[in-house]
Each structure stands twice: as C-alpha cells, then as structure tokens.
Amino acid sequence: MLVFVLNAGSSSLKYQLINAQSGELKASGLVERIGIDGVLKHEIGENKKLTFELPIPTHKEAIELVLRILTNDETKVISSIKEIDAIGHRVVHGGEYFDKSVIVTDDVIKKIEDLIPLAPLHNPANILGMKICQEIMPTIPNVAVFDTAFHQTMPEENYLYAIPHEDYTQHHLRKYGFHGTSHYYVSNEAIKLLKKEKSRIIVCHLGNGSSVCAVKDGKSISTSMGLTPLEGLVMGTRCGDIDAGVIPYLMERKHMTPHQIIDYLNKKSGILGVSGISSDLREVIRASLENDQRAQVTIKMLCNRIKKYICSYAGLLEGVDAICFTAGIGENADLIRKQVCSGLEFMGILIDQEKNLLKSDKSREINAKNSKVKIYVIPTNEELVIAKDTYELTKG
C-alpha cells in the first residue's frame, strides 16, 4: 500500500511517499516559503535529488506541484495519482478528543478546529492540508495522526497542573505533550533492542524542538512538553521551563502585549536567546570550542535541563532500563550526549566515549560494557509511524 504522508505547516509542506507494508521510501521532499518565493526540494528514494525554485502562492498549488512531480516522466515514481492508496496527515494537537489515529471525517475536522486555541500555529495548517487533499483527491481516504495521542496514557497526577480544578474541567488546561509519534517509534525500537516488553525507557527527542518522555511498558507516563510545546527543555528558540512570574514582569518592564510575550518566549529565547549566536546548536558548539563563554553556558544549561528530566523520570519509572537519544541533536551531537550522561554514573549510566563518537544512520548502543543502563542512539521515523497507522485504518 502506498501512503502519501503530509505534514502541512503555516508556510511549508513536508511529504513522503512510503510503501507502508515494506517501509520502503519511494520519494520525499519539502516545500518551503509558500506564499513568498517558493522552494521545493524533492528526493527520489535515496539517490536522485531535484530542487525547484518558483512561485508557490498557496498550499493547494504546493500539493498539486508535488503530485505532478511524483507522476511526471522525469521522476517516474508513480504513473498516476490513483496509485496512492491513502493519505496520512500529521496533526499537532488532538487534545483529549483523540488517543489514537483516526480516519478524517467532517466531525474529526470540527474537533481539530475546536483545538485551534491550543495550537494556533499548527492545527489550522494541518486542517488546510486535509481539506485540500479531500478536494483534489476525493476518492482517496485521509487519516489524522496526532502528536499528542501517545501521551494520553499519562496518569492524572502527571498531566494536571497545580491550579484550580475547574480550569481543567472548563478550559482543558493540562499537560498534553508532543512529539508523540517519535517517542512511540523510538521507545518501541528500544523495546526490541532490550528484548523485554516490561521496560522503563527514557526517550530524549532533541532537535530545534525538544522533549523527554518516560515510557513504562510501552506507554507514556510523563513528558516534558505541556499545554503547548513551550514547556520543558531549552530548545532552539523556546525558553522551556520558566517561572510564571517572569511573564508579567517582562510584560511590564518591556511594555509587551500577551501576543508579544508569547512570541518572545517561543521565537527569541532558548539557545538563540542565551547564546546570542544562533538557534542552530552546531554554530553554538563551534563557538564554545573557540572559548565563547555564552556558548559554553548555553550548552551547560541545555544539558543540565535534559539531565534534570532524566533523573526525575528515573524516579517516576522506579528505575531505568534504557536512555534513548533521537532527532537532529540527539542523533548527531556526540558532545551533548556525553555531557548529558556525565555525572549520572551513580545511576549506573556509563557512556562509552569511543562508541559515542562513531557516526551512523542506524540504531546503535553507546553505553560501556559495565553500564547498568543501556544508552541507545535511535534515528526517529515519524513518517513511517504515520504511514503504518494510515495503512492499518484503511487497508480493509
């Protein structure tokens, strides 16, 4: 079964064409700067790469362009759109409505629209992608796969905030968590490596957006992101955990509106704000190696926050069998993995520095032989999760 996996952002569109049964990636790409000047980067399998720079005014035109490229004579990925069996959509926020993936219906779209206040930057674009696909490919089923669904197994004591309970019952104010497809995929891969279903796993999804998840016996019991993706770790431009009192203090001192303070904490803080260099950790690491003090402090803050969550979640899990590093930073930044694990020897966490320095695009074990806890680097594959869920819901 061929599944067209779509991740529609406010000005971007990521896509993959996957054989959901075999896992084979047929094609992938990214459309950026929709509505501005437009850039489409398209890959066929793992070999052929194409780049197009042309005006792409709308998401509809972006999707139509992608479909033309998939079916044209130059690529020959598929001969016709009719070869696509189903479409899987990434949806950022499913609230408490959705604890699993669902076939898209009018009612599903209405519920996702109801959740727009919880994800104002993401859910509208996700909905737009669905509606466009329904319009231009009306006979092909659509499936919504939610970032928040995996975390719906969290117990009440771990997802509630310590505020009056009516704010939860009336306004749905609680921790939801994100990166659920990644945490699900990586924790399941770790379970296979451990060869035990009864397991206590901590997944560190570290990228421009980052989160940590405690997974017990394959189920999320706590995660670092909250009502929105702003809570938790120090990220590329997000501040992560912060004293709530900082918000009115800054609003008064800097004469900010609510919209401006949220923009400030989401887009101007984190690695970018502390380092004053970039939101790209690679640039900050390079500066730190050249003895830039702010860059060095930024890296220490980043690693200490991750370490804090690892220790906290080890307590919630009553021990830990494996720590997993994934996503752009987790998979590629050996310095971050080293500093996060340094000082955790008292927990039986011992990293092998030679293994840690090795580069690979495959899952690998980087702990020392005498480590009581396994340390894995596991490349995430959120698109494959979306494709497989889509297949399971539409194969009959």
Score class of each variant (00 low, 15 high):
Ser279Tyr: 07
Leu118Ala: 05
Leu6Ile: 15
Tyr185Thr: 09
Glu156Tyr: 13
Gln260Asn: 03
Ser199Cys: 15
Gly129Arg: 10
Thr326Tyr: 09
Val104Thr: 05
Leu25Cys: 03
Val31Leu: 01
Gln260Val: 04
Asp73Cys: 01
Asn126Met: 04
Pro117Cys: 07
Leu227Gln: 02
Gln260Glu: 15
Leu206Phe: 14
Ile201Phe: 12
Asp334Phe: 03
Ala20Phe: 00
Leu70Glu: 12
His183Thr: 12
Lys76Ser: 14
Ile36Phe: 04
Val102Phe: 07
Glu365Gln: 04
Lys268Cys: 02
Pro258Arg: 13
Asn142Glu: 14
Ser275Thr: 13
Asn304Gly: 03
Ile44Val: 15
Leu317Phe: 09
Lys111Met: 09
Leu70Trp: 11
Val297Trp: 02
Arg33Ala: 01
Ser360Trp: 05
Ala149Met: 09
Ser199Thr: 15
Ile366Gly: 00
Ala333Tyr: 08
Tyr168His: 13
Lys111Phe: 00
Lys111Asp: 08
Ser360Met: 00
Ile351Glu: 02
Pro379Lys: 15
His259Gln: 13
Met256Tyr: 11
Asp73Trp: 06
Tyr249Ala: 11
Ile81Asn: 11
Ser211Tyr: 09
Glu318Asp: 14
Tyr176Asn: 14
Leu70Phe: 11
Ala8Thr: 15
Asn291Cys: 02
Lys268Ser: 07
Leu173Asp: 08
Leu233Arg: 13
Arg68Ile: 07
Ile277Val: 07
Asn188Arg: 14
Ile103Asp: 00
Leu118Trp: 05
Lys100Leu: 07
Ile84Tyr: 04
Asn123Tyr: 00
Ile56Leu: 09
Lys359Met: 03
Val91Met: 06
Thr298Tyr: 01
Lys111Gly: 02
Gln353Arg: 08
Val246Cys: 14
Ala162Tyr: 07
Cys213Tyr: 10
Lys76Val: 11
Ile163Ser: 06
Phe4Gln: 09
Arg337Gln: 08
Asn332Met: 04
His165Cys: 00
Asn332Glu: 10
Leu17Arg: 09
Ile261Asp: 05
Pro155Thr: 13
Pro248Phe: 13
Ile202Glu: 12
Tyr264Leu: 10
Asp73Arg: 14
Ser79Asp: 14
Gly245Cys: 12
Leu233Cys: 04
Glu252Gln: 13
Met1Ser: 10
Thr223Trp: 04
Glu83Pro: 06
Leu344Glu: 05
Asp147Gln: 09
Glu24Trp: 01
Ile285Gly: 00
Pro120Arg: 11
Lys395Arg: 06
Tyr185Glu: 04
Ile18Asn: 01
Ile81Thr: 14
Tyr159Ile: 13
Met256Phe: 11
Arg294Tyr: 03
Asp389Cys: 02
Thr394Leu: 00
His151Phe: 10
Leu25Asp: 09
Leu40Val: 08
Glu331Met: 10
Arg294Leu: 08
Lys372Ala: 14
Thr153His: 11
Ser187Asn: 09
Leu302Ile: 07
Val108Leu: 02
Val297Pro: 00
Arg337Val: 05
Gly226Gln: 01
Gly35Asn: 06
Gln134Leu: 02
Thr58Asn: 08
Arg305Ile: 08
Gly240Leu: 11
Arg253Trp: 09
Ser210Trp: 10
Met130Asp: 00
Leu393Ala: 01
Glu345Lys: 07
Asn7Ala: 05
Phe150Tyr: 14
Ala27Ser: 13
Ala62Tyr: 02
Ala125Phe: 00
Leu30Cys: 03
Ile247Gly: 04
Asp167Lys: 11
Arg68Phe: 07
Glu382Ala: 06
Ile78Gly: 11
Glu382His: 12
His59Trp: 09
Val385Met: 11
Ile221Gln: 07
Leu67Ser: 13
Ile63Ser: 05
Asn158Lys: 15
Ile140Tyr: 08
Leu70Gly: 11
His42Lys: 12
